[in-house]
């Protein structure tokens, strides 16, 4: 929880990272700012940290547990109004206008992060 909102932390597989990097950012609503390397910290590319709140109307997207529906792009799927997010937390399909928010955070050590 951060500011009363859930935070998603996903340790991504190589395949997931590759899938996220292959996407042409020009096709995304966020444009160049949506590039996967801008959404993670250098040397910690596998860790994706996101505010777990759908940018449409604020539900918590599914995709955190093993057997959740993860949507058409292998990331998260918001059951409220059907927004699909990819393995970089970017909006790919559905009514949400923006990518899932990346909160300000830093790696305090290799195993610990500080959000805010």
């Amino acid at each position: 929880m951060w500011r009363g909102k859930p935070v998603f932390i996903r340790n991504r597989t190589k395949d997931e990272i590759e899938a996220a990097r292959k996407v042409d950012v020009a096709t995304l609503p966020g444009g160049a700012n949506s590039a996967d390397d801008k959404r993670v910290k250098k040397d910690h590319e596998n860790f994706l940290v996101l505010v777990g709140i759908c940018t449409h109307l604020g539900c918590i997207p599914k995709g955190q547990s093993m057997n959740d529906a993860k949507g058409d792009f292998g990331g998260w799927f918001c059951p409220c109004h059907g927004s699909h997010y990819d393995t970089s937390g970017r909006i790919r399909k559905g009514p949400a206008p923006r990518d899932l928010e990346v909160p300000p955070y830093e790696f305090v050590s290799a195993t610990k992060i500080k959000i805010g």
Partner: peptide, 27 residues
């Protein structure tokens, strides 16, 4: 519970038609 969204959020019945209009606008 702010950490769990119910699988299926529906408003009270008297708001359903307006809710349907809201959700009709997807991508």
């Amino acid at each position: 519970n702010p950490l769990v969204t119910p699988p299926h959020i529906v408003p009270e019945w008297y708001f359903l038609p307006f809710y349907a209009i809201l959700r009709a606008f997807t991508g």
